[in-house]
């Protein structure tokens, strides 16, 4: 409502005003919407964090505000399913009572997650799958994009469009036929099956990003390299990959995010807990029948989100540069 009011107000005030005033209004309006969106997007993670500080008993307590983090230390052993090792740790943390209750609760949840569940195995499996998928994706997508984007051959244009179209097929449609394929290869219930199928999602999109990026490089650059005596492999590795590094990083982040956060495939293909990955594993092990261990689920989700967050923070500038370059030329 307020937004609309300001939007309607601004032009009327600008009519008689100076350029400086209209710029000030533009600034105020943009800040207003930026803050609005920031709140909108930060509320879910905040709620997650608040919940992650509590025990299941505290969460189900109707007397406390669910929007606030834990105010008092939870009682040990109240998390159902907590094994003895976890309890011992819990007790140790409780002794460091100088810490705020919320931090204590959060650390207790982490400790229990690490010691009493298969969360560390999921984390390791996810890391293995993701690293492999990123490597496979790049090894396929970069040369594919180079040949589709830079070498004109019969059908290269149609192929480039086709690559993008395959990306548009949703994975919820693909997982049934892929189940057959993975099963036929004997890779069901193994995270290596995921390493095999995730590239069906990542390769087309990454190829598409890289095609756009490679095409934005002036053609004189490869002609100069050609005259300088470079063959196509040298051209790719010594000219195109370094020049298109921002695009390459954008594609890497994309492949990383997709395979880190994929849900449908692991849910469908994996059922042993030593093979599960973070997304499906957290849900299957922390939701037993209709018992939701919300505190630990939220903690697990936060920990699972940490690696992508760290990577984004470091590579954000490259990511944006790469995406926009691909967008304008793709």
């Amino acid at each position: 409502m307020t937004a609309a009011a300001i939007g309607a107000d601004a032009p009327r005030r600008v009519v008689g005003g100076s350029i400086r005033r209209s710029r000030r209004w533009a600034l105020i309006t943009s800040y207003f919407f930026l803050i609005l969106f920031a709140i909108f997007f930060l509320v879910p993670p905040y709620y997650q964090l608040a919940t992650a500080t509590k025990t299941s008993e505290q969460i189900s307590n109707q007397d406390t505000n669910p929007w606030l983090p834990a105010m008092s230390a939870g009682q040990e052993g109240l998390n159902p399913g907590g094994a003895n090792a976890g309890k011992a740790n819990l007790a140790k943390i409780k002794k460091d009572s100088w810490l705020p209750a919320a931090v204590q609760g959060f650390m207790a949840n982490i400790s229990q997650l690490m010691n009493d569940t298969d969360f560390p195995i999921y984390f390791r499996n996810t890391a293995i799958v993701t690293v492999c998928v990123v490597i496979i994706t790049m090894v396929i997508a970069v040369p594919a994009a180079f040949s589709l984007g830079r070498m004109k051959f019969w059908g290269s244009g149609v192929l480039a469009t086709g690559v993008f179209l395959t990306y548009l097929v949703p994975d919820s449609l693909l997982f049934i036929p892929l189940f057959k394929v993975v099963g036929g290869l004997g890779l069901l219930d193994s995270y290596w099956g995921l390493v095999l199928v995730y590239p069906t999602l990542t390769v087309p999109f990454c190829t598409w990003i890289m095609i756009g990026y490679f095409q934005s490089i002036p053609k004189e650059l490869d002609e100069a390299a050609l005259i300088d005596g470079a063959n196509h492999i040298q051209m790719l590795f010594r000219i195109f990959i370094p020049v298109a590094l921002p695009g390459l990083i954008a594609a890497t982040i994309f492949a990383f995010t997709v395979s880190w956060a994929a849900f449908v495939y692991p849910m469908a293909f994996i059922y042993s807990s030593d093979q599960l990955v973070l997304t499906a594993g957290t849900i299957t092990s922390l939701v037993k029948a209709d018992v939701y261990q919300w505190g630990m689920i939220m903690t697990a989700a936060l920990l699972a989100a940490a690696p992508p967050l760290v990577i984004y923070a470091f590579l954000m500038d490259y990511y944006i540069a790469g995406l926009t370059a691909g967008a304008t030329k793709g």
Partner: peptide, 13 residues
């Protein structure tokens, strides 16, 4: 042969 292009085509990196 060696060629000089209109937009120079220097390797930016």
């Amino acid at each position: 042969i060696a060629m000089v292009f209109q937009n120079y085509a220097l390797y930016p990196h």
